[in-house]
């Protein structure tokens, strides 16, 4: 089954990382990704721009309302995601622990995918 690993963390803490810290985390994450890729388990991976770049369309009204900023003001922000093939929750948690060792702090929300359209190749 495919799982989404939604990465939540304190955005401003990440933005306060030094270049060296940033590079170290990215290279450690890259190593985990390489391993998953070699196992044929790695799907799309995305890092999102800072929440200040976000725009929200509130569609609970007609016409929808466009609002600057992310959907919700939260202590931790959605900063990116991985899609990874896992045999089940056990393996998903194991993978999440590997990713967490590479990039500590914050949380991964692990959610199985219901529908997945890979999109335009």
């Amino acid at each position: 089954m495919q799982y989404a690993f939604l990465c939540y963390n304190h955005e401003n803490t990440i933005l306060a990382w030094s270049k060296e810290q940033e590079a170290a985390v990215m290279s450690k994450l890259g190593a985990v990704e390489d391993k998953l890729r070699a196992q044929g388990r790695l799907g799309p991976v995305a890092r999102l721009m800072p929440t200040t770049s976000a725009t929200t369309l509130k569609k609970d009204r007609d016409p929808p309302l466009v609002v600057d900023g992310p959907f919700a003001e939260t202590k931790e922000q959605l900063l990116g995601f991985f899609i990874i093939e896992c045999a089940g929750l056990e393996q998903a948690l194991e993978t999440a622990r590997e990713l967490a060792a590479a990039n500590p702090g914050g949380c991964y929300e692990i959610r199985p995918l219901a529908v997945f359209h890979p999109g335009t190749p």
């Binding site: 304190h10 803490t13 306060a16 990382w17 810290q21 500590p104 702090g105």
Partner: peptide
Amino acid sequence: STDPAWIDAALISAR
């Protein structure tokens, strides 16, 4: 174990 670099960044960003 909490990474000292992470703590530094957290303190800077909370300031």
